[in-house]
Amino acid sequence: MIWASWSDFFDMGGYGFYVWGSYIVSIICIVGEVILVLKRKRTLLKHLSLIQESTKEEKANETTS
């Protein structure tokens, strides 16, 4: 272990602001991209399945009537 304490770790030898500033933004970017990409795929799949259901219902209605 190269750090004496946790506060030492967060201080980063006086450069804490810079080191954490870059890592926090990187994490936000990476996590944000993952969330956006997954959300886009999920809404698209949901949208497609809704369309699918409605067309099925239409077909079912056509055959019954």
């Binding site: 190269i2 770790f9 980063m12 030898g13 006086g14 450069y15 810079y18 080191v19 870059s22 890592y23």
Partner: peptide, 21 residues
Amino acid sequence: GFFVAPTDFQQGEAYRIIFIH
């Protein structure tokens, strides 16, 4: 990057940005 790599004698801890940069 944060727990094994030693402190850089020139740049201190600031060099740790290198691991993402």
